[in-house]
Nucleic acid binder design. Structure first.
Lengths: 136, 136
DNA sequence: ATTTATACTTACCTTTTGGAGAGTGTATTT
DNA sequence: AAATACACTCTCCAAAAGGTAAGTATAAAT
């Protein structure tokens, strides 16, 4: 046949419905911004310690560079996830803590974290069998 | 002072505890892999339609290129999130559907999706006030 | 006979991401 | 007198992500 296949019927929805395309685009953008490696790792540390200073976060998050630390914290601040408090003393003293919004994201993302933890073995098994099939 | 500041006390844990560093690293890797833009968008479409073909997904996910579509689907298959069924006919016919693992990730990620949807306005407001402060 | 549908792969090129390392300014510690 | 703590910023460079466009094979529709 040289005619495009029609879409199958939708399932009963178990997912927030894709309504307004502008809202969808924004949601997508927000998720893309928020669901990244460094943001999640910093979020976790701040969820654990309530308030931390710049260099402390740098030590707690393994492998992060100063550049990424600054950049990620600025983004999180801009998005309203963290509060940044500057104490104008010498040497400088800056505290970071989660806002209510940041806490609620932490709570939501917790489910994904738990999923990853709970399904690590299944994922590794799937990869093993996939790679086995591919490589022979 | 020229001595490093000590860490503040930990809070009561509301987060899955960071235990074994190897598990942590794997969880982080899995989250980094799984929580990306295209994976999430494809996941959503497959959650909505149960089974879809390659070009159908391409049309449903706005802006995705063939390359990214193939690449992301392969990764999802390798990680055990989707099943790929090839019908050896001409022209080729390939169906994609979520596995149980994929469905469960969709369920977990749903909370983040809902969070983003629910807090869009707060995020935009935060950005507006941040940018306002910065630009003067 | 030409176009279209299907599900890709491959090669090339641009954009984005991110790491390394040096610089800033001052006060306390050694 | 020299090093350290702090919270960055800036520049340069390498690597990774990702887009575009062309190619593949074949049968059905026009």
């Amino acid at each position: 046949m040289a005619k495009p296949a029609p879409l199958p019927p939708k399932r009963a929805k178990a997912w927030p419905d894709a309504g307004d395309p502008r809202v969808d685009a924004l949601v997508t953008e927000v998720i893309g911004r928020v669901a990244d490696k460094w943001t999640m790792l910093i979020l976790e540390e701040l969820a654990e310690y309530a308030h931390l200073r710049f260099t402390q976060i740098g030590k707690l998050v393994p492998g992060i560079s100063q550049k990424m630390l600054t950049q990620t914290l600025r983004q999180m601040e801009r998005d309203g996830l963290v509060d940044r408090t500057v104490h104008p003393v010498i040497p400088p003293h800056v505290d970071y803590r989660l806002t209510d919004l940041g806490e609620s994201l932490g709570a939501a993302f917790c489910a994904v974290w738990l999923w990853a933890e709970a399904n690590l073995e299944r994922i590794e098994a799937a990869r093993g069998s996939f790679d086995g099939r591919a490589a022979g």
